[in-house]
Design a binder for these strands. Structure first.
Lengths: 222, 222
DNA sequence: TTTTCATTCAATAATTTTATTGAATGAAAA
DNA sequence: TTTTCATTCAATAAAATTATTGAATGAAAA
């Protein structure tokens, strides 16, 4: 085989991997899977896509090696295939946020549009948690909290926040976290809580970042 | 704006960055640009694509923030926009090679098909260079060598290797390097040299890897 | 075994991306 | 200023991806 032909083939094959990452719906799915293993239907529900559609996207991700499946009971659970998958996606996301000005501006604008939210860094949170100066709440859907969450965090899904906020103290700082940079649940939670008269802050990064850093978590044993 | 709508926009924007990486021709261009700044025509020639085609691909890469341009004399020089760009692309390539079995098999097969080439690790090369036990040759095009090369390497482009090999000793080990994992120039050079009766080996990684590791290089000052 | 139902498949329409061609642009050289 | 020519643009054809729909599959439950 001629080298030129081989190169053409080689880059074509390489592009199969990158193509898997080139679709917005699949990126959203990856962000969801970074939380842990979930069935197809769950993904469809949380990304507002038809089930058949999600299934097709998952096939693409599977073929590229980014995700794997495992059947449990009547559900097919999808998960990221390994740390490498998550790393690659994170690097890309970070790059996207740093390079693409439209992207970072979009997020900033959306966050500004809400009343300005206070943000706390991971390091500060750790310090304050040691001193028991904060309450940490996980505002992702309960299923994701159960899959794995930051140690000592309380599950308080964003959707039912108003009903359950009563159990929180208005004197203590409340820190909310969610899935990460492209997730807006914590923003919304902090916004709601502030309106209600609580002292709420948003953790700078989400659960996947915390877990990736090797910080203390509680993970569901299977 | 509704959160759902915002998310859709957000991932769509994010996908613009990843889409830039989803095309085989653009990946090859990125590999070429990893060597340094070059004009459009040069890229077209070295990737066997029409100039207009390359120009279009470069627009896409530019819009995504991966590359930047700078005019010098009558040429428009394209280069990677920064270390982040190269990092992101490297991570992806590494991930592709590790996850996509077809890809790694393709490279192995192609390399097996040639007579088996000996490979030397970066660490071993450093040791042997200190002892002056090897001659190091850079087999990339001369222009890329001039942009930057491993310190003490001799430029001996793969294309004109046969004419210039005479200046090499048949007694000493010759180590050839090129652009990296997806580049075949060093393979071809070692193959040729071995046929000609030289003791030739291939460096495991290419120039970009060497430079990224902070090992000694000589870079053109502009 | 039969039923259920989560998931996948298959066909096709809609959309997007890519290649191709030749003309337009515009900066540097003459 | 005029010419040159590297690069970009623009129009359109070709190819690939994605969405949509409804049917098929097949593992677990009944």
């Amino acid at each position: 085989m001629k080298t030129r032909d081989f190169k053409t083939k080689l880059y074509k094959q390489m592009a199969k991997v990158t193509k898997a990452l080139s679709n917005p719906n699949r990126l959203e799915i990856l962000d969801l899977l970074a939380q842990g293993a979930v069935p197809v239907e769950y993904i469809a529900e949380h990304t507002n896509q038809p089930v058949a559609n999600v299934s097709q996207h998952l096939q693409v991700l599977k073929k590229s090696g980014l995700v794997t499946t495992e059947r449990k009971g009547k559900y097919q659970y999808y998960r990221l295939s390994g740390k490498d998958s998550y790393d690659a996606w994170c690097k890309l996301r970070k790059f996207g946020l740093s390079q693409n000005k439209v992207l970072s501006k979009m997020l900033d604008d959306f966050r500004d549009q809400k009343q300005s939210l206070e943000i706390i860094s991971t390091e500060d949170l750790i310090k304050k948690m040691k001193k028991k100066e904060v309450i940490l709440i996980d505002v992702r859907p309960e299923a994701e909290y159960e899959q794995g969450h930051i140690r000592d965090a309380i599950s308080m899904p964003q959707k039912t926040l108003k009903q359950h906020a009563g159990s929180l103290s208005k004197e203590t700082n409340i820190v909310a976290y969610c899935r990460g940079p492209l997730c807006l649940m914590a923003d919304e939670a902090v916004s709601k809580l502030t309106e209600m008269g609580y002292k709420a802050l948003r953790l700078e990064n989400g659960y996947p970042d915390w877990e990736a850093k090797g910080l203390p978590v509680e993970i569901k044993q299977t």
